[in-house]
């Protein structure tokens, strides 16, 4: 289902990297009740901030959360 949802966000070719980030976001949300910000993602997901922006140029946490079906992460950093 990730490819269909990603296509709606303008991501044409879904890679393992996209899937990894989306799954991670979902798992974090289910265990902590909130999805991680970009900084937290970069520190804990195993995908660097640079790679995150290459995968999701329109905002990694924001777009990955949308694909993962979780609320947009809160936090300013």
């Amino acid at each position: 289902m990730v490819p269909e949802l990603a296509a709606r966000e303008g991501i044409a070719a879904v890679t393992d990297g996209h899937v990894k980030v989306v799954r991670f976001m979902r798992a974090e949300y289910l265990s902590k009740g909130t999805g991680p910000s970009v900084r937290a993602l970069g520190k804990t997901s195993g995908v660097s901030v640079k790679e995150l922006y290459e995968l999701f140029p329109k905002g990694p946490a924001k777009i990955a959360a949308r694909i993962a079906g979780i609320p947009k992460p809160k936090g300013c950093i």
Binding site: P57, G59, A61, K62, I63, C76, I77
Partner: peptide, 11 residues
């Protein structure tokens, strides 16, 4: 810095 980082996070 926070505004720049936040802008990128919003795409």
């Amino acid at each position: 810095l926070i505004m720049a980082n936040g802008a990128r996070a919003e795409g």
